[in-house]
Design a protein around this nucleic acid. Structure first.
Length: 859
RNA sequence: GCCCGGGUGGCGGAAUUGGUAGACGCAGCAGACUCAAAAUCUGCCGUAGAAAUACGUGUGGGUUCGAGUCCCACCCCGGGCACCA
């Protein structure tokens, strides 16, 4: 079974056991089991051409150790792997090389698979998934259809990032500082027809759900901030000389209404034109033009200086009937609230700045209870302040005033309490080839009604429609049984350069006769096959890369199922991951999107729970030797293949875990790995003599010293405990302490060695398999059970008592735990190092913590 | 600007949550083995000091018999958000 090497030859040992595991399918989860399940998962990789880096290794080793540990604990463990393979880099590479993305993806996956096997990750490869396989994205499309059916998908003209150099649209996250992430080309805003998902309908549930999740606080906070729930009120202002027209604002400070001395609307506000007077037309048009040319970056980060223009119109403050001017400024965002605000310069920093710049009146309406003079803007709103200059509301606290005013306006049909979110609906389409096609076709209004009359389709209550060149088009879903809708073969992945995906040029695929019941199609250039077929145009946009990763944790449960995303039995048994490990960079995007989809699936009755990831862990970043982020340009990149070649993967794994807390940023020290490598060498020599035979000092009959047994059992307990709490670094220390002890021992009982090998196995699975086998143990250490620690070696009846005089350490002594304070003081007095400090002093006070410390306060 | 997280030897990091600061490892020093080197093993390794001892966990204060750990103020580093009314 074993190799025959005399020395620790990891180059022989590691591949040997990797093959053994694969041949014996040791990591396959049982489909059904009476055993308790444990589902470990890491964020599946995007199979790039660059291969694995150390960050990946850390990411995957963390749950691997957990999975191996849980297997040893008797759990039925599911630890799967898949590929998040749609995406721009592959498509760009395909464009550049003229190769098909499918082939490029295949090649990259082969590289990743080889590397993952080389680091000994115990994935169940029989459940491997790939988001670009039609059998997988059939279900991505199916989920999308369910969203569509529930009215959660709609179409909108939205300004998006367009990169002329790349000839494509980019996602927000692909734009950094006004430039494309790839190639650093300038980008600009362009309105394009987009699919949008109504994630805002789930804002409250996404927010509330966070409370019960075992996630890093920082990530929960980020999601909370991203959702940005804000409670306030709507108020509608009448407009002077525009009878019947009202301007609605959202405010969290309704109590300051009397101090609203002007209003501001966003440049894109729908009433902007109407409110602009003839005299102001030119100025407003000029302002709107500059504002729209500004990138988001300029409008937010850089534009500290307020700009704006007067519309010429006035609103009536409903609190006091005052006429107040309506301004246009880009410090008001059209996409939040109603795109208009009431400006209260005395109590809002932004309004204050604007009013100062344009000479608008500033009226203080909130003052401290004692009416002392305060500096403006004054933003306090607690119970220690009250209203002034507010007519009959004077003297109220902000809270009281808000309630009374909201109730008043509500009765007048002029507003009332409401909630706003920062969260925007999710822009869900990309103008790319390499993504999931949308399972809909665009048809005329009459064809739509004709089609739905006889076909059984996942239809929304209100049809989704869109006007192209004055012609209205309706989104007709494909029937579910027509899925998957695959990507057509194209001759070129070259972007069209006109803001459309390469699919838009695939006329044969795009313009079709469509059979609503079956989803069958023929090119529109052919004669219409039958009278109930309709003339249709496919959607040329594709889904973003996030789509496939929104539900992959469900597909792992039952990856071959062709009738459902997974069987109800699998969904019930496996539920959701017990631990999910991945980088913090996905804190709001992937992790929020997946929660949204999961909640929709819960509402549909597809999944039994309403949260996908109950326990989440972010591994830290591995920095370069210089403490900087690893990057090719810095030349500080450590390559895992090279490290494995030099030290073996067990050393790599162990060192990555030993570096420091798993969640911390840690610099890679190429020499540091020698420490853990020596540790494994030492272990090898303890077990194997120079001829390659089992070391004769290990026998079945050897009596271990008390000291060794204590350390062994402490190690068993500590490592188990540390794994459960993801504190692997201190586990490694503890195991080193034990090995240092074992090395000094002249004889060791075999059971001590085998117990220790089991404890080390999750961290260093290859060497432990080899030594397990050389110790004459049968089978695989992978299927052995975790050792129990014996409490009798861990309970102490004596311990070191530390003597302090006035809080300073002066000596210590090993003493029974249960001695009285009096005895302890006697011991201190007779202690050779302690007694001099007591000479001629009076003991004023003694603090005695049995087994720990005796502190004598003397004068 | 706002919200988090963190500052411990030459370095990565431990510290039972208020009880000997520096576990474990890297680097370094000395010794053993060796013709020699590497590897391996043994010992030392916060600063000052011959020692006793004193001083030491970003800075300054405080609470406590006792503070890396708790409280207040400040400095620095990292992350997130950034006109969200």
């Amino acid at each position: 079974m074993t190799t025959h090497c005399k020395d620790y030859d990891f180059r022989q040992i590691e591949p040997k056991w990797q093959t053994f595991w694969a041949e014996n399918n040791l990591f396959q989860a049982e489909k059904t089991s009476t055993r308790q399940k444990y589902y470990a998962m890491d964020m599946f990789p995007y199979p790039s051409g660059a291969g694995l880096h150390l960050g990946h290794c850390e990411n995957y080793v963390i749950p691997d150790i957990m999975a191996r540990y849980k297997r040893a604990q008797g759990f039925n463990v599911l630890y799967p792997i898949g590929w998040d393979a749609f995406g721009l880099p592959t498509e760009n590479y395909a464009v550049k090389t003229g190769r098909h993305p499918v082939d490029v993806t295949k090649e990259n996956i082969a590289t990743f698979t080889r590397q993952l096997k080389a680091i000994g990750i115990s994935y169940d490869f029989s459940r491997e998934i790939n988001t670009t396989h039609p059998a997988y994205f059939k279900w991505t499309q199916w989920i999308w259809l369910q969203l569509f059916k529930r009215g959660l998908a709609y179409v909108e003209d939205k300004p998006v990032w367009w990169c002329p150099a790349l000839g494509t649209v980019l996602a927000n996250e692909e734009v950094i500082d006004g430039k494309s992430e790839v190639g650093k080309h300038p980008v600009e805003r362009r309105p394009l027809r987009q699919w949008v998902l109504r994630i805002t309908a789930y804002a409250d549930r996404l927010l509330e759900g966070l409370d019960k999740l075992d996630w890093p606080d920082s990530t929960k906070r980020m999601q909370k901030a991203w959702i940005g729930r804000s409670e306030g009120s709507n108020v509608e202002f009448d407009i002077d000389c525009h009878d019947g027209e009202r301007l609605r604002v959202f405010t969290t400070r309704l109590d300051t209404l009397f101090g609203a001395t002007y209003m501001v609307i966003a440049p894109e506000h729908p009433l902007a034109d109407q409110l602009t007077t003839t005299e102001q037309k030119e100025a407003v048009a000029a302002y709107a033009k500059t504002a729209s040319a500004k990138s988001d970056l300029e409008r937010t980060e850089l534009a500290k200086d307020k700009t704006g223009v007067f519309t010429g119109s006035y609103a009536i403050n409903p609190a006091n009937g005052e006429k107040i001017p309506i301004w246009i400024s880009d410090y008001v965002l059209v996409s939040y609230g109603s795109g208009a605000i009431m400006a209260v310069p005395a109590h809002d920093e932004r309004d204050f700045e604007f009013a100062e710049k344009f000479g608008l009146p500033i009226l203080q309406v909130i003052a401290p209870q004692d009416n002392s003079v305060v500096e403006l803007p004054y933003v306090d709103k607690g119970d220690a302040v009250h209203l002034i200059n507010s007519g009959d509301r004077n003297g109220l606290t902000p809270k009281e005033a808000q309630q009374k005013l909201a109730a008043h306006f509500s009765s007048e049909n002029r507003g009332g309490f409401t909630v706003q979110y920062k969260l925007r609906d999710w822009l869900f389409s990309r103008q790319r080839y390499w993504g999931e096609p949308f399972p809909i076709v665009w048809v005329s209004e009459s064809d739509y009604y004709k089609a739905i009359a006889n076909a059984k389709l996942p239809l929304p209550e209100t049809p989704v429609s869109y006007t192209i060149d004055g012609v209205i088009r309706f989104a007709l879903p494909l029937p579910e049984n027509a899925l998957p809708l695959s990507l057509p073969e194209v001759s070129s992945y070259e972007p069209t350069g006109i803001g459309e995906s390469p699919l838009a040029a695939m006329t044969e695929w795009l313009e079709i006769w469509h059979e609503p019941n079956t989803g069958k199609s023929v090119p529109a250039t052919e004669p219409c096959p039958d009278e109930h077929w309709v003339l249709a145009r496919r959607e040329s946009n594709t889904m973003p890369q996030w789509a496939g990763s929104c539900w992959y944790y469900l597909r792992y449960l039952d990856p071959q199922n062709s009738d459902a995303i997974a069987s109800p039995e699998a969904l019930e048994y496996w539920g959701t991951p017990d631990i999910y490990v991945g980088g913090a960079e996905h804190a709001v995007l992937h992790l929020l999107y997946a929660r949204f989809w999961h909640k929709v699936l819960f509402d549909l009755g597809v999944v039994p729970t309403d949260e996908p990831f109950t326990k989440l862990f972010h591994q830290g970043i591995i920095l370069g030797e210089d403490g900087e982020k690893m990057s090719k340009s810095r030349g500080n990149v450590a390559n895992p293949d090279e490290v494995i070649e030099k030290y073996g993967t067990d050393s790599l794994r162990l060192y990555l875990m030993f570096l420091g807390p798993l969640e911390a940023m840690k610099p890679w020290n190429p020499r540091g790995i020698e420490g853990v490598h020596r540790f494994l060498q030492k272990l090898w020599r303890i077990c194997v003599d120079s001829e390659g035979n089992p070391n004769p000092k290990i026998t079945d009959t050897a009596g271990d010293s008390d000291e060794i047994l204590k350390v062994l059992h402490k190690t068993i307990r500590k490592v188990g405990d540390d794994i459960e709490h993801l504190r692997y670094n201190t586990s490694v220390s503890q195991m080193m302490i034990l090995v240092n002890q074992l090395q000094k021992a002249s004889e060791i009982n075999k059971s001590t060695i085998t117990s220790f090998l089991k404890v080390l196995a999750p961290f260093a699975p290859h060497i432990t398999e080899e030594l397990w086998s050389r110790m004459g143990q049968g089978g695989s250490i992978t299927t052995s059970t975790w050792p129990n620690f014996d409490q009798k070696f861990l309970t102490k009846n004596e311990s070191k008592l530390v003597f302090q005089i006035n809080g300073k350490y002066r000596g210590d002594k090993i003493l029974p735990l249960d001695i009285s304070e009096k005895t302890a003081i006697e011991e201190a007095k007779s202690h050779i190092k302690v007694s001099p400090h007591l000479e001629g002093k009076e003991i004023k006070r003694a603090i005695y913590v049995p087994g720990r410390i005796l502190n004598l306060v003397v004068v």
